[in-house]
Write a protein that binds this DNA or RNA. Structure first.
Lengths: 380, 380
DNA sequence: TATCTATTTTTGTACGTATAAGTTAAGGAT
DNA sequence: ATCCTTAACTTATACGTACAAAAATAGATA
């Protein structure tokens, strides 16, 4: 054996160390840039004339040291490891909390539990814990939530924006997150002032296909109930109006009833009034299933039958669509899947600081059940 | 239909992950203390019946995560990574996280969002953050949740026990909490092996008054559907039987249909069978509103009218009681209030370590709606 | 007793093989 | 052109083997 001297703080002359040195050289000399793919394991096996096991050991080390990251089935990539050069060697000292914050507008409401379940189920498989807060759609409470999140040491944040259609006074907290290099992701809606990464549903299209469905069934007087303090409601309303336009159905301003978090009940009163008029509408598009269920309850007390007298349609395709006797036609929302993908996104952003990972927009679909029918059946 | 599945994957069931879990368990439960040597690789090979490669992969991961360190020729040792958690209680330099952990069995299910909302709303007023995890009523996942909680620095823990009627193998984690002077509180149910502080509903009384209500309406053949893997279901069943006894109504064993988390659907099939018999029951007591709604759906398909042909009754007085066309008679559950009081209790326990603060038992009440009626109206 | 030596134990490096699981891209059907 | 299936590619897991290097142990010797 001849490996005696060699001064050695230069890392022992093991094969896997030589591979490591070569790969780090590629990175430090810029031959491989952040985000770029390096050679596959099999290629490296041939290049270095060593076994795959040795290559994997080298790459595994470099992943732990922050030089590279791997994606099963895709390849091994160079990471943008400028942030934590110190932590890599320090090791122990770094507080590896593995903690993701989640802020939603509501919790007890019907689709949020599914979203959170999706987030939680993914995070738990990755050993992350989930710190949760909700704003009750109140911007003061959002500020408080953001402060709490910043005080605890979260590695990433998933936010559902509060009152996204209004100006948001808490933008500076999000900028603070950016400064601290804490990635964040918005779901369902986003603050246009920020241009953040987001995962959401194409709500405008949802509103469009919902309304189009009714128009194609022959309806001409369709009422829309929309929430206007978040972008989901505003976008659904946009699609609603667009469908009217595209199909050349006469549209009047009083076919839309707007409401906000604070005056939700008044919208139902307004609906009741309109239904008592002479030429009452033949269909209703509701902001979501929850509102639709309430509307159905009112329709019942008024002695109107669904869908014979009037068609009604909700959003989010929640379990409520099946709870009522008349199964509710609705527009899909990924819910749990959205939660999972949001969690996946944020973990990826936390672990490999380089990857931008694009925003996601889900295309909604209509699920036709019993609550909508052709206007032909009704008296018209 | 509802896209439920796919939520599981308990940290992926790879062999090396199982080895990792076992070793981290030794550490978190204090069976191996910092500086102590763990079993050698060859011993672990025999213990787990896996190859040395697999053992090395598991240990390698744990070394990178900071749980262990290795010394060639000497062995593998537990590292003293308690620097952070230890400091937390010591209070040095005051990084008061003010963090409360919450573990529930479910999240998307109907009453849990309300409980969590109650907890969150109180904690936020006190400046605490909430770290959340759920077990899906699976003891393996409960173990994982407890590990994650112990790894992050929580000041207190609120737990809804998983499968509380069975023996629980994770007791040692709760004992570890006690050793670390981290207060915890159980809600809805509790592990009798532990005698912990708890906040729950008198479920036996709930089962009793529910059944008594039906008996007083003249029903004599009342079916009970109860979940038997948690104490809530078992206690409700106890009350059910007691009511039969006290009112001297003939009781037969086949008047009870039992089910567990895993075979919930079979109970509904069993119900359907019984309903097709000659002397079919005139009333049904359901474990909770969720099950009652499903049962109602079955009754509808069988052409049975509620409450004329059959009375039905649920538990928890959830929003589901109002969602259906026939409003559901149910037994109250404090839900959000329970969450608030649990949060209040745990914050008090964290801030003034002296106060024991007694356990709380809520007395349930019956809310009579339209789904139960006197047997006189029916044919009998 | 103290010290050196040989043996054993334990981790480290390195090779081989096989199968599973995820991603991507090409090709075919609609 | 669009959607779906298939195949090829890539990483992930898991089994096996062998030998090297460092430390601990036991035994022999001074």
């Amino acid at each position: 054996m001849e490996t005696q001297e060699s001064g050695d703080s230069v890392a022992q002359k093991t094969k896997y160390n030589m591979v490591k040195e070569q790969i780090t050289e590629w990175i430090t000399t810029g031959q491989v840039k952040p985000g770029e793919k390096i050679h596959s394991e099999n290629e490296l096996v041939k290049m270095f004339g060593v076994s795959r096991h040795t290559i994997r050991q080298a790459i595994g080390d470099l992943v732990h040291e922050g030089w590279l990251y791997r994606e099963q089935g895709a390849g091994t990539f160079c990471s943008d490891r400028k942030t934590e050069t110190g932590l890599g060697s320090a090791g122990q000292a770094g507080k590896r909390t593995k903690n993701i914050g989640v802020i939603t507008t509501y919790i007890s409401d019907y689709i949020f539990p599914s979203i959170i379940k999706g987030i939680e189920s993914y995070l738990s498989t990755k050993g992350y814990s989930l710190t949760f807060a909700c704003t009750d759609n109140d911007i003061d409470k959002e500020k408080q939530c953001l402060q709490t999140m910043l005080a605890s040491n979260i590695d990433g944040l998933i936010v559902e924006p509060t009152k996204s259609s209004n100006f948001n006074p808490n933008i500076n907290y999000y900028l603070e997150l950016e400064q601290n290099k804490i990635p964040y992701l918005m779901i369902n809606q986003f603050y246009s002032q920020l241009a953040p990464p987001y995962i959401m549903v194409n709500d405008e299209k949802g509103g469009y296909i919902a309304t189009e469905h009714l128009i194609k069934l022959g309806h001409k007087r369709i009422i829309g109930l929309f929430k206007t303090d978040d972008l989901q409601g505003v976008n659904r309303m946009k699609g609603f109006i667009q469908a009217y336009k595209d199909h050349a159905v006469p549209f009047f301003q009083d076919m839309i009833i707007n409401f906000t978090t604070e005056d939700q009940d008044k919208s139902l009163e307004a609906l009741q009034e309109i239904l008592q008029k002479e030429d009452r509408p033949t269909a209703i598009v509701c902001y979501n299933d929850q509102l639709a269920i309430k509307a159905i309850s009112i329709l019942r007390t008024m002695g109107l039958s669904i869908p014979n007298d009037i068609s009604i349609l909700g959003f989010d395709d929640s379990f409520l669509t099946e709870a009522s006797e008349v199964k509710l036609t609705s527009i899909t929302h990924p819910k749990m899947k959205m939660g999972e993908e949001a969690a996946k996104w944020i973990v990826a952003a936390v672990e490999k600081k380089s990857k931008p990972a694009p925003s996601i927009v889900y295309e909604p679909q209509i699920v036709v059940r019993e609550s909508t029918a052709s206007v032909a059946v009704t008296k018209q």
